[in-house]
Design a protein around this nucleic acid. Structure first.
Lengths: 232, 232
DNA sequence: AAGTGGTCTAGACCACCGG
DNA sequence: CGGTGGTCTAGACCACTTG
């Protein structure tokens, strides 16, 4: 029932910001002022302020004070997993081919590698209810321990393919989402006869030193995928 | 040069997790153990552990201890703003119409309103370099102070339209992204003659009590937009 | 009962900022 | 200089889990 003091502090200030009593740029009472206000110690006040800072409500400048931050109103959290999305999950996959290739120009640029690096190219088709829903290509920079065994590749998401070499924690990832119309070869793979848009998701994985490890491109049938995001 | 003790603790444990010395589910030494290890006080150890918990590396169970968390390898941060994206920014907008409408079935469901609520429907076209790049529709549930003046609407993003009534902080937002082919009317608005895919972004805004405030749908020309995300 | 994490205190010293 | 935030200490009491 009874909340800790620092929670009370967090809620009070958060409410003031949400109501507009405090606006971006305004300053928050100093730590010592809040100590007196809430009749508590400095560490308790600091705990509350740290939480508000973490939530993006306030920030501090050493020697000066705490201020209300401008909200990042265009920031969203997205959960993307090529095998699972809002309207359809992958229940079957078909491995078209696993090739060891030399990188072409675009790949050399995008993966920042030399032209004699070996690249593993994996092509798959994803199915839901027997229908092809996505065509998936991964380019992995070859390293020892890379998965080239069919059973390891078939059902794996991109991060999982690389997790043998790099901890999922240390991995950095980038996503680019756009829409396009399918080429003829893709239309065949995805059973598209009439006009239909594709949602394309490109995934780039980096190791902990920001060195690219792989590029993935997934072409989803437009009617089979929705990607969702929420504000934090 | 010299780092605080808690930073050292954070880095040590983070490295162990990234290297694989510590794996998801493993337990972290107790606070008192770490106090001895780093010859520091409990509050300092706790500060370090709190940061690691915040970063998603560990979690704690009262009475038991701290454990390494499973990474959320499918979580991304996306910055979306209908006026700005990776490859093109909006440099001009045209207001097609502002209408007060009665909600149709779909709108009643999606905005969770009664059928006699008034809805403001705003239709715009976004341009870059004189070329139409997106067709934008917003449905706002009418409230006092809503923008119905052309100058207020023309250049505003969705959150800005509503920020007169609700603080940007208190606002919750949802995003749904998908691809589709354009209808004839949309093709005309966006100067599309051949086949071209559309990237559709639906935005739903909620107030601090999770009550929907509006729905926005933006149809981007597939060749004029890319949405980017990064892992945290 | 012993160990754990969660909350809290009443001090301390430091670097930084402003007048 | 006094006020600010940043780091840190050496205690305390509590609720919880485990043996």
């Amino acid at each position: 029932m009874k909340n800790p003091v620092y929670v009370k502090i967090v809620e009070d200030i958060r409410n003031k910001v949400n109501n507009g009593d405090l606006e971006p740029g305004d300053d928050i009472p100093s730590e010592t002022t809040l100590c007196k206000e809430y009749d508590t110690s400095r560490m308790t006040v600091r705990k509350g302020l740290a939480i508000l800072a973490n939530e993006g409500y306030i920030y501090s400048i050493p020697g000066k004070g705490y201020y209300v931050k401008k909200p990042e109103y265009n920031k969203y959290t997205v959960y993307y997993d090529e095998m699972n999305n809002l309207i359809n999950n992958v229940d079957n996959t078909r491995l078209i081919a696993v090739d060891i290739i030399k990188p072409h120009e675009e790949l050399i640029n995008r993966l920042q590698i030399s032209k004699n690096k070996k690249i593993i190219k994996i092509r798959r088709v994803f199915y839901t209810d027997g229908e092809p829903m996505a065509y998936d290509i991964k380019y992995l920079i070859y390293q020892k321990g890379m998965p080239i065994i069919e059973t390891e590749i078939k059902e794996a998401t991109f991060p999982e393919m690389i997790s043998k070499n790099t901890s999922l924690f240390a991995m950095k990832k980038e996503l680019v989402i756009y829409a396009t119309t399918p080429e003829e070869s893709t239309k065949k793979l995805l059973n598209i006869y009439d006009k239909l848009a594709l949602l394309v998701v490109e995934q780039k994985l980096y190791d902990s030193k920001d060195k690219p490890m792989g590029l993935g491109i997934t072409y989803f049938r437009g009617d089979y995928i929705k990607i969702q995001g929420v504000s934090q």
